[in-house]
């Protein structure tokens, strides 16, 4: 097991190195650099030259690359090239919890709604209830997240005035404040995710209910809930977890989009601003963190497999 974890960690580092390298060179493949634009107004070409030197951009690209790698491994992601030159690590430490909050909340809401909905759909196959869940799921799937976000703001912020339309409150200001700012973005991105999970739970459960071991469980005279929840459900969950892992990428991407609608300064906004400003260190750092999250969530999915399915053992 520990050997397996070691191998997975090495794999993760290779993936993150590849991502870092790709981003590093792609950013520099675009002609020009940020400094020319920055000092364009002043009309002073020496100022740009000076800044280039200060950030080490005057050196050959391969030197810059190795410097970047060495620093990144030491946890130093550099500083923003703008304003007061805030360290990238600080920017990420500030913005990332917001994005993570939205993603995790969306995940929790989606899963708590989707799993029961999918189960009910499967158990009352072709009933009015099942059709209802199906219709809602398809609506949820076909609604773009930013559009849903706007609808939510119109209804619950502008209309009813129950929730703040925009902004963010950290947990330190209280759970209520935190939740009231995040619930709408979380629902906006969690809805299509919930729709996918509900459909997946339904089809997977229907498949498991046809298996012989579920018949055997019934033939033992077990209570219906025992047959469904103890025998069928864990087996039905196995393919659902795969989809959850993949769909988590969807959630992160969604968070990046709706942060802009709700004016929450999360990783998504940082990234977009960084790209617009060609703030190389910021873009590099933000993408590195996102890739790290993906690698980590993949690892968690694989661990979950092993926890549910005794046939899976890692060594």
């Amino acid at each position: 097991m520990s050997k397996y974890l070691l191998r997975r960690t090495l794999g993760a580092m290779v993936v993150m190195w590849a991502v870092a390298t790709l981003v590093f060179f792609m950013l520099r493949a675009v002609p020009g650099d940020p400094f020319t634009a920055m000092v364009f107004d002043t009309g002073d070409p020496t100022a740009a030259e000076e800044m280039r030197r200060a950030f080490g951009f005057d050196q050959p690209v391969y030197v810059q690359y190795f410097k970047y790698l060495v620093q990144a491994v030491q946890g130093n992601l550099g500083t923003s090239i703008y304003g007061s030159r805030v360290p990238v690590a600080t920017i990420i430490a500030e913005s990332f919890p917001r994005t993570l909050s939205i993603t995790v909340l969306a995940f929790l809401i989606a899963v708590t709604i989707a799993i029961p909905a999918g189960l009910i759909s499967a158990l009352y196959k072709y009933s009015a209830l099942d059709h209802g869940v199906t219709i809602v799921a398809f609506l949820g799937l076909s609604m773009p997240d930013f559009w849903l976000a706007i609808l939510l703001i119109i209804a619950f912020a502008a209309g009813l005035g129950w929730l703040p339309a925009i902004g963010y409150a950290p947990l330190s200001e209280g759970f209520g404040a935190w939740l009231s700012h995040l619930i709408m973005p979380a629902i906006a991105i969690g809805t299509p995710f919930a729709a996918i999970i509900a459909r997946m739970v339904r089809s997977s459960m229907l498949e498991v209910l046809r298996t012989e071991y579920v018949q055997v469980a019934s033939s033992k005279g077990l209570l219906r809930w025992q047959v469904l929840l103890q025998h069928a459900f864990p087996n039905a969950l196995i393919p659902v977890i795969t989809v959850m892992g993949i769909a988590l990428a969807l959630l992160m991407a969604g968070a990046v989009v709706v942060e802009n609608v709700f004016a929450i300064k999360g990783l998504g906004r940082v990234l977009i601003q960084g790209i617009l400003n060609r703030d190389y260190p910021v873009v590099q750092g933000a993408i590195l963190i996102v890739s790290g999250i993906f690698v980590l969530s993949n690892l968690i999915v694989d661990m979950l497999y092993a926890a549910i399915d005794p046939r899976i053992r890692y060594e």
């Binding site: 012989e212 071991y213 055997v216 033939s219 005279g221 209570l223 025998h231």
Partner: peptide
């Protein structure tokens, strides 16, 4: 009927490879 099943009448199925639940001991 449920209280008779598995208690007074039990059943052995055809496919031993698929009649046991793979995730339960």
């Amino acid at each position: 009927m449920r209280t008779l099943r598995g208690r007074r009448i039990s059943m052995v199925f055809q496919e031993p490879m698929t009649s046991l639940n793979p995730v339960l001991s």
